[in-house]
Every structure is written in C-alpha cells, then in structure tokens.
C-alpha cells in the first residue's frame, strides 16, 4: 500500500483512496475505541465518527504518522461520546449495565480466536473481560492514556500528541492507571489465569 499516495489522493477528494486507508487502519482504530468505550456498539459508533471526521479534515493532515493522526481523531470521538454520556445519566446506566456484564455478546464473539482449545479460549475471554472491567472503572483520561500506551503500543510522546497534553501528564496518568489496575486485578485474582496471576515473592 502506497500510503502517501493514497493520502494525497484522499486529500484531493478521492473517496476510494480514503476507503483503502480505512480498511488498513480500521482494526487498530476500532480496538482503541473498543477498549476506551467498553462496548462494541459504542466502539462502532466512535470508529465510524472518527473516519468521517478524518475524511472531512484530511486536508489538515500535515505529514507524520498517519496512524497517530487517526488515533487522535478516534480518541476525540471517544471523548465526545463519553462527555455525552455524562450529560445523559440514562446512558451512563446503560454503560454500567454493559460494564457489569462485561463486553456484550457481540464483542465477545468477535474476539479474534486462534487455534486453541475451548478451555484456553474460555480462560482468555474471561481474562479479557476482567481486564476490560477494570479498564472501564478508570477515569477517562487515565483509561485513554493506558489503552494507547499498553494496548496500542504507542510511546509517551505519541500519547501526548494524541491527547494534546504534556509528556509529564501522560507519564503520571499511565502510572496512576497501572496502580489502579493493579488494585483491580487483586480483586479479580481468582479470574486471572496462572500466567497472569500476581505472584508474591516469598
């Protein structure tokens, strides 16, 4: 894929070229939205909004990592949706129901399954639900930072650029998020498989 050429064509209004970029990046964008929003429907909405916004603003793209640029846009889309939820308590209750039951059946079914035994797959799904449940209880800014860093593999400077905050703020948010997740994992220790069980040194 000749990404620069596709971006140039998309900047000239070529929707087909932009859609090729969408197909290339929709998985990381959707995964980021999924980990931030906590459910498949909200993640789908945020992902679609992000790509629409990206297409409308693609002329403002001035080079650099296109993936980071997309991540910033989907982050903003997720922020907007989270703000809307805070303004609408009913939506928050809906989200709480999702959190209590874990990822919805659709999202669970969509987990990429490799060739593994049913037991192993069940353990993996259980672990993912537990982690997602812990993530969902984080403050939005900390959840965004830790998902970008640990789930998406972005470094501090990329997270800082995507969330438009200082590098020190990113470092602090990630540290707090990890500390809170550690506490959360302790409460779900029975759910964690042996490989991820927090073993205390003698």
């Amino acid at each position: 894929m000749d990404e620069p050429a596709l971006i140039r064509d998309a900047q000239r209004g070529d929707l087909d070229s932009f859609n090729r970029l969408v197909l290339e990046y929709q998985s990381p964008v959707y995964n980021l939205a999924y980990r931030i929003m906590g459910d498949g429907d909200s993640a789908s909405d945020a992902t679609q909004e992000a790509f629409i916004s990206a297409y409308k603003n693609i002329r403002s793209y001035r080079g650099g990592s296109f993936k980071s640029w997309l991540m910033r846009i989907v982050t903003n889309a997720c922020y907007d949706e989270l703000r809307r939820r805070k303004r609408r308590p009913a939506s928050s209750l809906d989200a709480l129901a999702v959190v209590e039951t874990g990822p919805d059946a659709e999202g669970e079914a969509q987990l990429v399954s490799e060739t593994e035994s049913p037991e192993s797959h069940a353990e993996r799904v259980e672990l993912a639900e537990a982690i997602q449940n812990c993530l969902d209880h984080l403050p939005d800014d900390q959840r965004l930072a830790i998902v970008m860093c640990d789930v998406q593999g972005m470094d501090y400077s990329e997270v800082a650029a995507a969330t438009r905050v200082a590098l020190g703020t990113v470092k602090s948010r990630i540290a707090r998020a990890r500390a809170k997740l550690r506490d959360c994992f302790r409460h779900h220790r029975e759910l964690l498989p042996a490989a991820f069980r927090l073993e205390e040194e003698p």
Binding site: A43, V112, I131
Partner: peptide
Amino acid sequence: GLTDLPKV
C-alpha cells in the same frame, strides 16, 4: 495483561 489483550 493489557499488551496481550486479544485484538477485537
């Protein structure tokens, strides 16, 4: 645990 989360 976060890094190894399965891709959705």
